[in-house]
């Protein structure tokens, strides 16, 4: 009995965004990464094209992080050296790209100067040949002073820089516009703001429409993940149905969010009924990432090398053709 396979007819597809630049293109990356371009729901190869596989970054900080002790064995030796840390992420752990968080720029921590931040980014770019994402310390006022020096120091590299928010998107967008980088547009689990922010950035420069990455804010498993999941499903459906202002690739800090919560961190001795801590943490992070892959994420930023490994394996499996 021949079953009539159900394929959605979509009017549009997700825009493609290129990350990084090779020598020919004015940068120093060994290769570029293209994300987006889907004309189907996640991994439904039978109804459209999924030309680019989702990519997975690992997180690097520019100072010793306050992470769970279980990370010592993976990164303890390089905590003090962001460039070596980045290299280890790529060479040993197989990260597709690197995200550096300039945590030390926080005025309440080291208050690192914009020039020193730019120097750190330069060093990382020298240490690894994959595309690089750079995000600030999270304090908008300070971060706004970082973007231009970094964008200029890395001119031509086609970095991904963030984050731009509804109340504060101009500084980072200008820096990206002037030096041809890609901007992360972050909205607080709110699809309306997500769309509006993309419009505002595109209004600053129509050319930016192919240089925006959506960060809808990905909540961790158990902490509002279903809100982010549904927003991403709606955004992706909207994109496929022709809503261009939602038609950008999506990105999320699955590692950062997962390792903030009790379930990933609480020690085995303190909560034996939840099982072994590190394994639990790895799966908390990987399950969070798995869910976002199913709702359409294109760039995942992970923290634990073992979580990255299992998620990359899952992406390999899901990228296999399933057309009928």
């Amino acid at each position: 009995m021949a079953v009539e396979i159900q394929k959605e007819k979509y009017r549009s597809k997700v825009g493609e965004v290129v990350l990084g630049a090779t020598k020919d293109q004015g940068g120093t990356r060994s290769h570029t990464i293209t994300v987006g371009g889907e004309s189907a729901l996640p991994f439904l190869h039978f109804e459209g094209e999924i030309p680019n596989r989702p990519v997975v970054a690992l997180e690097v900080w520019d100072m010793v992080p306050d992470w769970n002790p279980c990370f010592e064995q993976y990164f303890g030796d390089v905590y003090n050296d962001p460039a070596a840390w980045a290299k280890k992420c790529v060479d040993e752990y197989g990260a597709d790209l690197i995200q550096v968080r300039l945590k030390s720029a926080d005025p309440d921590l080291n208050d690192t100067s914009p020039e020193d931040c730019a120097a750190t980014v330069k060093k990382i770019l020298e240490a690894v040949s994959v595309p690089v994402i750079v995000i600030g310390c999270g304090k908008a006022e300070k971060d706004n002073t970082l973007y231009t020096p970094i964008a200029e120091a890395a001119a031509g590299e086609n970095l991904v820089m963030g984050v731009g928010e509804l109340e504060n998107y101009k500084a980072v967008t200008s820096a990206c516009m002037a030096n041809n980088h890609v901007v992360i547009a972050q909205s607080p689990i709110d699809i309306n703001i997500c769309k509006q922010l993309n419009i505002l950035i595109t209004e600053m420069s129509p050319a930016m429409s192919t240089r925006i990455i959506i960060d809808p804010t990905v909540a961790a498993l158990g902490y509002g993940i279903e809100y982010s999941y549904s927003i991403m499903e709606r955004a992706r459906n909207g994109a496929l149905q022709g809503d261009k202002m939602l038609g950008m690739p999506m990105y999320g800090n699955a590692g950062f969010e997962s390792w903030r919560v009790k379930e990933a961190n609480i020690l085995t001795e303190e909560q034996p009924e939840w099982g072994e801590q590190e394994e639990r943490g790895i799966l908390w992070e990987a399950t969070t990432a798995m869910a976002y892959l199913q709702s359409g994420i294109d760039i995942l930023v992970m923290r634990h090398p073992e979580a990255l490994k299992v998620i990359k394996g899952n992406i390999d499996d899901l990228m296999k053709d399933n057309s009928y």
Binding site: I191, N192, Q196, I199, R234, A235, G238, D243, L246
Partner: peptide
């Protein structure tokens, strides 16, 4: 039928 944002008419 469309997702709201402040500039929805222009969109």
């Amino acid at each position: 039928m469309d997702i709201y944002c402040d500039s929805y008419v222009d969109v």
